[in-house]
Amino acid sequence: MVAERVPVEATHIMMFARSIGDPNPIYYDADYAASTEPGRIIAPPTYIQASAQFDEDYPLRPKIGEPWFGSGATPTGTPPRTDGAKDSEDDGDKKSGGGNGGTLHAEQHFTYHRHIGPGDVLTPTVKPGETWEKQSRRGGKLLFSESVTEFHNQDGELMITSRGVGVRTEKPVEQDPS
């Protein structure tokens, strides 16, 4: 479940920077960027997460012609299964359909070996990560799973290492009064 190749594009970087409310011109103005230390447009630090756009099997993007688990005429387009199996047992992915608290993002860590910019074509490699369990007051039993992805550029240089930790909760996380 990872993209085979991730082309880094200027328009995508601009849209991403807008979406995180970052007005730094190094993310969209090539002339300005040429005058900076990196010398070209670079991507914001968390941009690589958008490599999901290039993952053919990414489960959190609707696929043409297939039912989607978000709402339409009904609150979900993929009701919980009635054959006794839980959604999670055949998916094992990040879908948050009926029956449990779904999977949330617990941690995210990036190491920047070099800074990526438009024209780079990255190849992700996923390394096996650890899994562990914890009991929590607010979310019930928590199952953590880690995944480490290395992104190399077209010249074989290691650009970014990404380590994400997801947590599958037994129930929706209770909200503390605040």
Binding site: A50, A52, R61, F69, S71, P75, T76
Partner: peptide, 22 residues
């Protein structure tokens, strides 16, 4: 849209309230 993460928990209030329980 920018990130590609269309999990309905973040944009679909009906799903999030009635199916996910938030």
């Amino acid at each position: 849209g920018a990130s590609g993460d269309y999990n309905p928990l973040h944009t679909d209030d009906l799903f999030t309230r009635e199916v996910a329980g938030y």
